[in-house]
Design a protein around this nucleic acid. Structure first.
Lengths: 316, 316
DNA sequence: CTGAAAGCGCTAACAC
DNA sequence: GTGTTAGCGCTTTCAG
């Protein structure tokens, strides 16, 4: 493969001139520019990206830390990041961690290797204290709120969203309200869900909290646990529309009417919920991803809140 | 940031020795190795990845070309690729093209820039003739069969799968069979679907082919077109379980019984189909992705077929 | 075992 | 405008 010297020699100019035409530097005569351009095409030359990155000290590529990629919510987020990357000609690398804290740190270390300019954390396992030191090596953007000054945030007011949703259910006369979460108390979302629940309803039966919910099948499992209880809940707030769909389906299968016997509301406005006419709260994760991307490339430490919308359809 | 020279100086050795310990070269005395190691920790040193890539002439990172990331099928494939990458310590970059042929070529060009060692094509817009030239710069793996000797393939026998599915429907007594596809004739899958259909049923009513189907809502739309026709189909083969779910739902909403009034079979064994007990043909896209990954890192040009499975559940 | 030295391919002062 | 030159941070002969 030809390099910049080959081009220079063949075009009868210096490497600086070649570099200048490559980088659209205006201080090149039209004749030399044309000559260089011609040779570039003749030799089918393309600059070596590693060499450019090395000397420029940046890669124009960013990473997205997410536990899984086969998850609707993370996928929406990634979609937003990709939208931005296409727009601004960045490259995005997906960094799956499966919630392994050590692996997560390895990913952050790519900043130090100068392999990535910045990293967007869709969800994390490490405490902020363990993450902060890496801000020394590159930009770190969180998709949740944290007041640490070194971290830019594109976040949703989850606590507000959860409180508002539970309040909505309460206003509709529900007092026995169950809910599902993905992870347990180690998760920020779960913590906020619990806090919001207590804020609205006070204490709750532990059996009203179903964990490890990700997809439809988990929703079915949740419904099985919930709907045969003596104190069957009259409403459930699911942590995603797929989970909500599973609950819906199981409820229907045992002849419960939605929303009369059981009100259901999900999250993220996913396709399946649209189809089933399930109410949902749309956290606009695609927008969160887009915003996170822009914060990342601007090396911003701003805290940007993305508004959420509660969509009331047939299921509550 | 410290570099290899700083480490060498401070440890009282040459850069070669530092490089050796970095790369676990056995020809280093224990004492020097220890000294170097200590300084590396003292100075919190990590090798610069661009410099390493530049001189090694490889990046240990691969790209995945896919039109969208918010698509269940591509997502499964990507998931497989990521599985492999975690295992073998590679990095994966997602290259969304939105089926823009020019953008697709730009992505392939990352091989030439030496930014990526190889590229997996999940779905393409360009003809093979336009793609082949890039094999000169790196490994290209396809997730479909092509007999070109320069391209490694991890593929499913789609034609066989489609024929078998249509035949299954025919054996069950269906003669009015409709089907959905994502893209039109420019797509390989669509072409094979049409070919398989003709093989089993001979010619068909154009109205039995619904295009642009990706999610549940497209399934609903397809059902609306299909189910009010004079020659209403008695079965439909959907190009994904989400689409199948949309069809299922609409059918139920107009009081059609599944499978008695309408048989439905989807593809990819997606969560929604499991929930709805829809029959499906599982093309094992995660395995396709994993296999594609291994072909990529081994720079293999092998053609590996991944078996598919027809899962008969309640809907046919 | 160890070190000197020659690059990898490119950018960016700096001098003309 | 243009060329010379000094790196960027690393690996890898090649001698010793």
């Amino acid at each position: 493969m030809a390099n910049i010297h080959d081009i220079a020699k063949r075009a009868g100019v210096s490497v600086s001139t070649v570099s200048r035409v490559l980088n659209h530097n205006p201080y090149v005569s039209e004749s030399k520019r044309a000559a260089v351009q011609r040779v570039i095409e003749e030799l089918d030359y393309t600059p070596n990206r590693s060499a450019v990155d090395l000397i420029r000290r940046e890669t124009r590529s960013i990473g997205v830390i997410m536990p899984y990629n086969n998850n609707q919510a993370f996928d929406q987020l990634l979609h937003g990041v990709l939208n931005g990357s296409v727009e601004r000609d960045y490259t995005v690398t997906v960094l799956p961690t499966k919630y392994d804290a050590v692996k997560e740190l390895d990913c952050l270390n790519m900043l130090k290797k100068k392999q990535l300019d910045s990293i967007i954390i869709a969800s994390r396992s490490n405490a902020w204290d363990a993450i902060i030191p890496y801000t020394k090596y590159g930009t770190i953007i969180a998709c949740e709120f944290t007041d640490h000054p070194e971290i830019g945030c594109a976040y949703i007011d989850r606590y507000g969203s959860y409180v508002e949703t539970f309040q909505l259910l309460k206003n509709k006369g529900h007092s026995r309200v169950a809910f599902t979460t993905a992870r347990g108390e180690e998760s920020n979302s779960t913590q906020l869900t619990l806090k919001a629940y207590r804020q609205v309803f006070g204490d709750f039966l532990p059996e009203y909290h179903i964990r490890d919910c990700y997809g439809i099948d988990d929703g079915v499992r949740a419904a099985q646990c919930l709907l045969h209880s003596d104190r069957r809940p009259t409403a459930v707030y699911a942590n995603g529309d797929e989970v909500a769909a599973g609950i819906y389906q199981y409820a229907r299968s045992i002849e419960l009417a939605v929303p009369d016997d059981l009100a259901i509301i999900g999250q993220e406005n996913q396709p399946i919920g649209i189809g089933l006419q399930l109410s949902t709260v749309n956290h606009q994760l695609v927008k969160v991803g887009e915003q996170a991307f822009y914060l990342a490339i601007e090396k911003s430490k701003a805290k940007i809140e993305i508004p959420y919308h509660i969509l009331v359809r047939q299921s509550i």
